[in-house]
């Protein structure tokens, strides 16, 4: 493990912080992120109920709850969304409010967590979100990766791709930044959750249109070098129905 203090929020780019939880006994880790833009804060895939205390402590190090105006969630799974109602309690409890940014398809399912915020559906808003400062976040549809309405978020200012489950990994020897064995760790996870190589290649073709400096997945490690190598590795992945068709 490097000298990075993962007990605290870790700045991975200007205004962007990793606020995840490293469970040394688990092979699967949660990586929420917080983007701070002026007086506004955006929470990405806030995580599970189990991870909430750790994630919360890191959010508290960085912003007041009132500053959180948007929670971006790539799909409805509990490891990403379980903590949303708890964050809402804190945000609304101090007089704030926020929107849940997701796809229309995911919004139907996320409502079952008992969320109280309005949805901002990316597919009904020209696949972009403009912050108060004028900064724009861009969304890209990555259908069936692994949810039909899945998408990724690109921040043109930092050139970070917030990728949700895509580029995530299984790892018991987790490090914040991807190491030389990360492609194997990534395949270990994604081969089990993605539906077919054809679908992966479509998503990678969309993703590589962006000028990406860093990939920030919700599981696994942050990829801060050899971006194209990791994209190419996923293009070659065989998963889901591919094996049945052999």
């Amino acid at each position: 493990m490097s000298s990075i203090d993962i007990a605290k929020a870790v700045k991975i780019a200007e205004g962007v912080h990793w606020i995840g939880f490293y469970d040394e006994k688990a092979g699967f880790h949660c990586n929420p992120y917080l983007l701070i833009d002026g007086d506004e804060a955006i929470l990405f895939d806030p995580g599970s109920v189990q991870d909430f205390p750790c994630v919360l402590s890191k959010v508290c190090q960085l912003v007041d709850f009132k500053q959180i105006t948007h929670i971006i969630v790539t799909h409805q799974d509990p490891d990403l969304c379980g903590a949303i109602p708890r964050f809402e309690e804190l945000i609304y409890g101090v007089g704030g409010s926020c929107k849940i940014v997701t796809s229309t398809r995911a919004s139907f399912l996320i409502s079952y967590y008992g969320v109280i915020s309005d949805f901002y559906c990316v597919d009904q808003n020209d696949w972009s979100l403009t912050l108060r400062s004028g900064r724009e976040l861009k969304f890209t549809s990555t259908p069936f990766m692994h949810f039909p309405g899945a998408f990724v978020t690109y921040d043109p200012e930092t050139k970070i791709l917030f990728s949700g489950d895509i580029f995530g990994a299984f790892s018991f020897t987790w490090e914040l930044y991807a190491n030389e064995h990360y492609i194997e760790a990534m395949k270990a996870f994604l081969e089990n959750y993605l539906p077919s190589n054809k679908i992966v290649r479509y998503a990678m073709a969309q993703i590589e249109k962006r000028d990406i400096r860093m990939i920030a997945p919700q599981h696994g490690s942050v990829i801060n070098k050899d971006i194209q190598k990791h994209i190419d590795a996923l293009k070659g992945i065989e998963c889901g129905i591919d094996l049945e068709e052999e």
Binding site: F170, F172, A185, F189, E238, E246
Partner: peptide, 19 residues
Amino acid sequence: KYGMVAIIGCKIPALRMAK
């Protein structure tokens, strides 16, 4: 030592080669 995550993670390439 590591539970099913370590098994599932190598299952797909193992299945392919075995097949």
